[in-house]
Design a protein around this nucleic acid. Sequence first.
DNA 1: TCAATATGCAACCAAAAGGTTGCTTTTATT
DNA 2: AATAAAAGCAACCTTTTGGTTGCATATTGA
Lengths: 121, 121
Amino acid sequence: MSPRRRGDLEPARRTSAPVFAALGDDTRLSLVAKLSDGQRHSITRLCLGSALTRQAITKHLRVLEGARIVRSVRSGRESLFELDPAPIRQVRTYIDSVSEQWDRALSRLKSFVEDGAPGQG
Amino acid sequence: MSPRRRGDLEPARRTSAPVFAALGDDTRLSLVAKLSDGQRHSITRLCLGSALTRQAITKHLRVLEGARIVRSVRSGRESLFELDPAPIRQVRTYIDSVSEQWDRALSRLKSFVEDGAPGQG
DNA sequence: TCAATATGCAACCAAAAGGTTGCTTTTATT
DNA sequence: AATAAAAGCAACCTTTTGGTTGCATATTGA
């Protein structure tokens, strides 16, 4: 029926791609790094080391929020951001399954060659 | 001197962001999945299940190649692509260090709270 | 209440991303 | 030699991204 060869990477793919995309920016990765101290930070605080505008940083935070990597709570006049480690763990699992599949394929290839099978390249 | 608080995530960040960006697309993730069988595939082969044009797929392959996730070798009239697992392993390591840092921070927070320190939120 | 602080909102802009179509070139095949 | 197959090149288009500036709004604090 549906093309389900190989491992089960394919369901997790659609959910992983947006997380990868959100992590695919240096500014956003540095925001994640700052937030990986497990605490809540205001936007102005997160702007500190950066050359960018507050609004630029805000946009990046919203991108991270869209990928659920980050949550925001309003507290008084400031909005505080905190990391949600779940999506990052999820892509880690995805990467693991890709690597694992690659390793298995390679060992199959190896034993295939060791058996002296016909030319493979 | 240079702002080197926290762990050593910061050097690896600049090299990881492009890899994340390259993985942040569903089409490209599916190409990676196909190539994770450890074998070389031609472009037309990689186009098979897709609704996109060959040229679109080619562009995606070039993006993956730019991030060193994939290598291409010309063989006769076709150009064959194969996965290079190194960059993916690299981002996996990066993710691990972020998670690890988060876990450490959380356990520090926890013992801090257990010591009955003044209000933390 | 007035001023400072923190953020939100919106318009705008340039560049990059993702995709298409059409044509050429190279390599196989018959 | 002629045809078919595989890929490359280039122009073009639309949407998204990453960033800016300017102004409005909400919340503190003196």
